[in-house]
Simulated assay, not measured.
Amino acid sequence: MKKSFTVLLVATLALSACNSWSDSRVNPSNWFGSSQPAAPTETDSNDANALVPAQKEGGGLFSRSAPEDTSVPIAKIDELRIDPTPNGAIVFATGTAARQGAYNAKLVRVDSEENQKNGVLEFTFRVNYPENATNQGTERSRKVTDAININKDDLQSTRLVRVVGQQNALESRRR
């Protein structure tokens, strides 16, 4: 009981001594001044990546090289759907993988001069498979879906959206 009272007394005296340092630079509450009004910075309100910092080329001391892309086109494209949004459109694609366990599905944009000239927006539906052998399974168990957002700028010059798989491709024309 005597030790706890002594500790409490010492702590009280130490805290009361901090009052004399209230205007000192040692006090953490004085490290920053009071807030001042400032002009807002110009940002685009439609910028989806406004809070993501820009990547520097080369990286830092501990940066890793980009991993090798081991994905392959999906076996068959089953469905292509384009839903309009206020900022552009969302392209949904559903495909059937060659075997079970497909993961990391992504629609990868194919850029070529011919596509740009003809107003074609082409994507390849790519997936990764496990290294170990897996069963083929039922068609329903091999379904994979992915979506990608397209902004208004890309849509203005687009007349055709195409999603390509290993065995087939599906297209959707602008009305």
Score class of each variant (00 low, 15 high):
residue 1 M to Y: 01
residue 2 K to C: 01
residue 2 K to F: 04
residue 3 K to P: 01
residue 4 S to R: 02
residue 4 S to Y: 02
residue 4 S to E: 02
residue 6 T to R: 02
residue 7 V to N: 01
residue 9 L to E: 01
residue 10 V to R: 00
residue 11 A to Y: 00
residue 13 L to R: 00
residue 18 C to H: 08
residue 19 N to R: 10
residue 20 S to A: 14
residue 21 W to A: 11
residue 22 S to Y: 07
residue 25 R to C: 03
residue 30 N to H: 06
residue 35 S to A: 09
residue 40 P to T: 08
residue 45 S to P: 14
residue 46 N to Q: 09
residue 46 N to F: 14
residue 48 A to V: 15
residue 51 L to D: 02
residue 52 V to Q: 05
residue 56 K to I: 08
residue 57 E to N: 08
residue 58 G to L: 13
residue 59 G to S: 03
residue 59 G to I: 09
residue 65 S to D: 14
residue 65 S to P: 05
residue 66 A to S: 13
residue 69 D to A: 05
residue 74 I to R: 06
residue 75 A to L: 15
residue 75 A to I: 11
residue 75 A to Q: 12
residue 77 I to F: 09
residue 79 E to G: 06
residue 79 E to A: 10
residue 82 I to Y: 07
residue 83 D to K: 15
residue 89 A to N: 03
residue 90 I to P: 00
residue 90 I to T: 04
residue 93 A to L: 06
residue 93 A to N: 04
residue 93 A to S: 13
residue 93 A to G: 05
residue 96 T to I: 10
residue 96 T to C: 02
residue 97 A to Q: 07
residue 97 A to M: 14
residue 99 R to I: 09
residue 100 Q to T: 11
residue 103 Y to T: 09
residue 103 Y to V: 12
residue 104 N to I: 10
residue 104 N to A: 11
residue 109 R to W: 01
residue 109 R to E: 07
residue 111 D to R: 14
residue 111 D to V: 15
residue 112 S to G: 01
residue 112 S to F: 01
residue 114 E to S: 08
residue 115 N to P: 00
residue 115 N to A: 10
residue 117 K to C: 00
residue 117 K to W: 04
residue 118 N to V: 06
residue 121 L to I: 12
residue 121 L to M: 14
residue 123 F to A: 02
residue 123 F to Y: 15
residue 124 T to D: 05
residue 126 R to Q: 08
residue 127 V to C: 01
residue 127 V to P: 00
residue 128 N to Q: 13
residue 130 P to C: 08
residue 130 P to V: 13
residue 133 A to V: 11
residue 134 T to V: 13
residue 136 Q to L: 06
residue 136 Q to F: 06
residue 137 G to A: 13
residue 138 T to M: 14
residue 140 R to N: 03
residue 141 S to K: 15
residue 145 T to P: 03
residue 147 A to I: 09
residue 147 A to L: 14
residue 151 N to T: 13
residue 155 L to G: 02
residue 161 V to T: 05
residue 162 R to M: 08
residue 165 G to E: 03
residue 166 Q to W: 06
residue 169 A to Q: 12
residue 169 A to N: 04
